[in-house]
Design a protein around this nucleic acid. Structure first.
Ligand SMILES: [Mn+2]
Ligand SMILES: [Mn+2]
Ligand SMILES: [Zn+2]
Ligand SMILES: [Zn+2]
Lengths: 156, 156
DNA sequence: CTGGTTAATGAAAATCATTTCCATTTATTG
DNA sequence: CAATAAATGGAAATGATTTTCATTAACCAG
């Protein structure tokens, strides 16, 4: 149930780009907004299906591509063979975090620690790199890989 | 031409794990050692083929998986639909760098700038995260995304 | 050096996430 | 409400990667 049709934070962005606001898109954003985990296209399809059975997997993929291009959603590859999607920034600014990926079980942990000193480092790096390589930097990604608690115990 | 069969830097690692040293593996490592770019499995297949036409694509995939698991090779997803591989560390310590990825043309630039302050930041982050999340961190990845010189000009 | 053991391999087939096609639907606008 | 073009769904295509299985060859003991 996508809720009342009132103006929603992302409607403006859509209208501004000349994109239409459809039931499917509404449902997909709704799921992404409430997602705890890092959802695959199929995960989203399954969550959208009960309330909007008419939305097909193709639309999920198309919408996600659109959202990624608009910068509203980030796309990740955690090594399990399917892309994972996550809202870039909600209405609340909970957002900015990075990932700890277990190479053994593919579990992913969001962390926000060290974000301050990280921001410091990133700002200078971005500036320097942009100038040196004539790159217009819009985004970054940091991931740490290793073995999680559970997997380490299993090995022992 | 995989060169003389003398002891090579990675032979020890292989023997230690009980892995056999085969012509195919020799050829694949040889290509990776000399690679300038970030090669896909097929790129490697094509480079190996002339001197070792008997090595099939399946072996390329299998060997790359092995090398990634051993930590000798890093696997990347730059968003063009195929995995890219790069030697983690050669005999010479040229290695450590990160990537600038053009989201428009998928061009990738290696950079080593800011590595010192980055290392500082990473060391502390790794320690803190390892303790807090009980993660055994073995690796990390940093990528900046944006639009490269060429692509920006085209848009203008 | 040689034969036995078993990892490694190639080719073909299977998998499966993602994309493409195209006829149909629907959001938007006046 | 009608006109228009964007958006969509379902089926088929795509294409990278994986699996299967019969064959080869690396390695080791003798
Ligand atoms: Mn996350
Ligand atoms: Mn590189
Ligand atoms: Zn794990
Ligand atoms: Zn570019």
């Amino acid at each position: 149930m996508p809720g009342p049709r009132g103006p929603v934070w992302w409607h403006g962005r859509f209208r501004g780009c000349g994109y239409r606001i459809t039931l499917g898109r509404e449902a997909i954003l709704h799921v992404l907004t409430r997602a705890e985990a890092h959802l695959s296209a199929e995960d989203i399809y399954l969550k959208v299906h009960p309330s909007c059975p008419s939305v097909g997997l193709t639309t999920i993929y198309r919408t996600l591509e659109l959202l990624v291009d608009m910068g509203l959603v980030h796309k990740f590859d955690f090594g399990d063979g399917r892309a994972r999607y996550e809202l870039a920034e909600g209405p609340k600014k909970e957002g900015h975090h990075h990932h700890l990926v277990c190479t053994s079980c593919k579990r992913v942990i969001n962390y926000t620690d060290f974000i301050d000193e990280e921001l410091e480092f990133l700002k200078r790096a971005e500036e320097g790199l942009a100038k040196k390589y004539q790159f217009d930097i819009t985004n970054h990604m940091i991931q740490f890989y290793g073995m999680c608690d559970n997997c380490r115990k299993k090995k022992a």
